[in-house]
Amino acid sequence: MNIKKPKLTVVGAGPGDVDLITVKAIKVLKTADVVLYDALVNEELLDYINPEAEQIFVGKRRGCYKYQQEQINELIVARAKSSGHVVRLKGGDPFIFGRGAEEMEYAASFGIDVDVVPGISSSLAVAAYQNIPLTKRGSAESFWVITGTTKEHKRSNDIALAAKSSATVVVLMGMSKLSQIVKFFQDEGKSNLPVAIIQNGTTVREKVGIGTVATIEHIVAEKELKNPAIIVLGEVVKHRKIILDIKQQYANVLQG
């Protein structure tokens, strides 16, 4: 009997657009014996998986967990030992609030070989698709990427620190804490700071709300924005309108 060596490869699927997965990630999917994938993974990517591989959905939908994290860890080890190469396919980048490191540590503690294929993080790509650069000369020299909700389901204290800086601030998983996030920036006298909220970024279901710290909650309610979404706070949000205005000017010239 040909017994396959147990292995785990944690793979980043990118932010949503099927074309934003890496070539290396596709190559790995073709070698998988088992693939465990999350809810934020574009299901079109499942077409790249080895057709003989077992596919298991382990994500969260509508607030319901199909598997708890401890169960996912155990499933990875069990399948690696029984089937061989397990690919853990995660939205975005698996090392940016994706628990990829935790799953690798758990598998490695059972003697399983582990590897990672980085993915394009939604914190970068979703903003970029809306012509929002996280850094720009004269606007922002650095950026923070922060989780809006910690492991204990509380607001991250790092947001208060970020609000004091001149950096661009990107908050993932922060929609349920939006009022608290906005309050930090208001307390720093930044009510006029531009804010963008992008739901289902880089996909055909994308929705966008643009405002300021003072107005963004009203815009979210008006546009019915919700998770999955990222929040971008900073002067760089203005770049989006600059590009749109330039495009409109050229369109007017062509029409005239």
Rank of each mutant, 00 (worst) to 15 (best):
D19L: 15
A32M: 02
R61Y: 09
S122T: 00
P94D: 13
K24C: 08
I243D: 05
L8S: 09
A214Y: 15
V220C: 13
Y250M: 09
T203D: 10
K190F: 00
I21P: 00
A125R: 06
E43N: 02
D187H: 09
I181N: 02
R155P: 09
K238M: 12
M1Y: 14
M175F: 12
T212R: 09
L244Q: 14
S82Q: 06
V116K: 01
Q186T: 12
S122Q: 14
G59A: 05
K238L: 10
T31C: 10
G189D: 12
R137F: 10
E217L: 07
A221S: 00
M175I: 15
L178P: 09
F185S: 11
A196L: 11
S156G: 14
I146G: 14
A167N: 15
R99E: 01
G14D: 00
R240I: 06
F57H: 08
G148L: 08
K81V: 04
P133Y: 01
Y65P: 05
V35C: 00
I96C: 03
M173A: 12
G256R: 03
E235C: 05
I120E: 04
F185M: 00
A140R: 10
G111T: 02
I246K: 03
G14H: 02
L193M: 11
K27D: 15
V170K: 15
V236E: 10
Q71C: 10
G174K: 02
Y37P: 12
E217Y: 08
K223L: 08
N2S: 05
V86T: 04
L161G: 06
M175H: 04
E188W: 11
A229I: 01
E102I: 03
I243T: 15
N200S: 11
E74Q: 13
V195K: 05
P194W: 01
K136R: 11
L75G: 07
V171N: 04
T9V: 04
G111F: 13
D38V: 07
P6K: 00
E44C: 05
P118E: 00
E152G: 15
K223D: 00
K5E: 10
V23C: 08
I197C: 06
K238N: 13
F97Y: 12
R88K: 01
A107W: 11
H153D: 08
K164P: 08
K241N: 13
V171S: 07
I120H: 06
D17P: 14
I26M: 03
K136Y: 13
D93R: 00
K24D: 09
T147H: 15
F143G: 03
K238V: 07
E102F: 01
I210Y: 03
K81F: 00
Y48N: 07
T150F: 02
R61E: 05
D17F: 09
G16R: 02
Y65A: 09
A163C: 01
Q68K: 14
S176P: 12
L172T: 00
T202M: 15
D93V: 03
Q180K: 14
L89S: 04
D38L: 15
G12K: 03
T135N: 04
V41A: 01
N42C: 11
K4S: 07
T202F: 11
V170Y: 09
I246F: 14
L225T: 15
L233I: 13
I146H: 14
L40V: 10
R88T: 06
V58I: 11
S166V: 13
S83V: 01
E70L: 11
L233G: 07
I216P: 02
I243Q: 15
D115F: 04
